[in-house]
Simulated assay, not measured.
Amino acid sequence: MAFPIVRHRRLRQSAAMRNLMRETVLTANDFIYPIFVTYGTNIREEIGSMPGVYHLSMDLLEAEIRDIVSLGIQAIMLFGVPDHKDAEGSSAYDPNGIVQEATRAIKGWAPELIVMADTCLCQFTDHGHCGVVHVHEATGTAVVDNDLSLALLVRTAVSQAEAGADVIAPSNMMDGFVAAIRDGLDEAGFTHIPILSYSVKYASSFYGPFREAAHSTPQFGDRKTYQMDPANSREALREAESDVVEGADMLMVKPALAYLDVVRQLKESFDLPVVAYNVSGEYSMVKAASANGWIDEKNVVLETLTGMKRAGADMIITYHAKDASRWLRGEE
């Protein structure tokens, strides 16, 4: 049947009717909020390219955590900015490193809050790459050594779990990283700790502001030999399938906005929860447009996050989480 018997507008006549018909519902339970912790005291330093996002020292972290909990946000993604970097990123797996120290403190302040620890070396290496760099003697070419990197990533994951992390979230994109970390966690007695794998992480141009925030810009070359080509989606399914076989508990697509087709593909292809990372560049574009009066920030953010969930995301990592949670509660 068609018009005039079928009139689609009948189900849009009022706010109450639209609420009844709504297919996708966004709540604070969907959000994971990224936090950047650094050394020092009395540091609440706004990141220039990410208005409203801060480097926080440990002495100011508790107030931030309590604000997050009060908004109904149930999970954070923890990133650390160390005071020491070296070729192997040893601060990443230091039992007294910034991520480990922050994790212990957060679990003391808010034991119910899920702490997800980003498991990578890029913030901790002096070269800014996500693994160990090996220089071939014959050619002088520097490459990220996949298998040598795995051992350090396992040490990092176990160290984070020992500090109290609830979820290990490896973002390094080394081949075999999920299997290596799963084995390492299990051997260390952490069989109950889930792995949120950055399964599909593209070599994206949307990461610029994050690299400022995490001080993780590569000092040479790029990450295209281990992060994915933005043109590929079948490859995303192969990457995700490998992680499923190796023991991942959740699968991530990063970035989100330009890759919602990939989010949908993972949702339809696997029975694990899918996480979308609404990355720094996506956040910064909205903030810049809003500051110029070109868009309504609240409505654009909520529409964007709803679109990610509609595409199939079960969870969304987003720097908008605090604002979005307030807006969903009716606060301005």
Rank of each mutant, 00 (worst) to 15 (best):
V200G: 02
R238W: 02
R223Y: 11
L196R: 01
V167K: 01
D147S: 10
D229A: 05
R264S: 14
G184Q: 03
V154Y: 05
P194M: 03
I195Q: 01
V245M: 05
E187R: 15
T225N: 12
E282W: 11
A165S: 15
M173T: 13
R264G: 04
P218Y: 09
G208L: 10
I193R: 09
E162P: 01
R223M: 06
R155S: 12
Q265Y: 03
E241D: 12
D166C: 09
E239N: 10
T217D: 12
M173F: 10
N172Y: 09
S197E: 02
P255G: 08
S197D: 04
S242D: 09
D183L: 08
Y198E: 00
P194E: 02
V245I: 13
V286P: 06
A169K: 04
V245N: 06
S159C: 15
L148G: 14
A161Y: 08
Y277M: 03
G164C: 08
S205T: 15
S233I: 10
S199Q: 00
Q227P: 12
L272W: 04
L150Q: 04
S233A: 10
K267H: 12
A157Y: 05
G247I: 01
D222R: 07
N232W: 04
I193K: 11
H215K: 14
Y226G: 03
P218I: 07
D183K: 15
M250K: 01
Q160C: 11
D183N: 14
E239D: 11
L148W: 13
A161C: 10
V275K: 00
S216F: 11
E187I: 09
V279M: 07
Y259M: 12
F190I: 07
R155W: 04
V178P: 01
A180K: 06
E241C: 02
A256K: 04
R238G: 00
R234T: 11
A276R: 04
D175A: 07
Q265V: 00
S280C: 11
F177K: 07
A213I: 12
L150K: 05
L260R: 14
H192N: 14
L153W: 08
V245S: 01
L196H: 04
V244Q: 01
D271Y: 02
G164L: 04
Y283W: 12
A157D: 04
A258T: 15
L153R: 05
E268V: 05
A213P: 13
G184A: 08
S204E: 05
A213L: 07
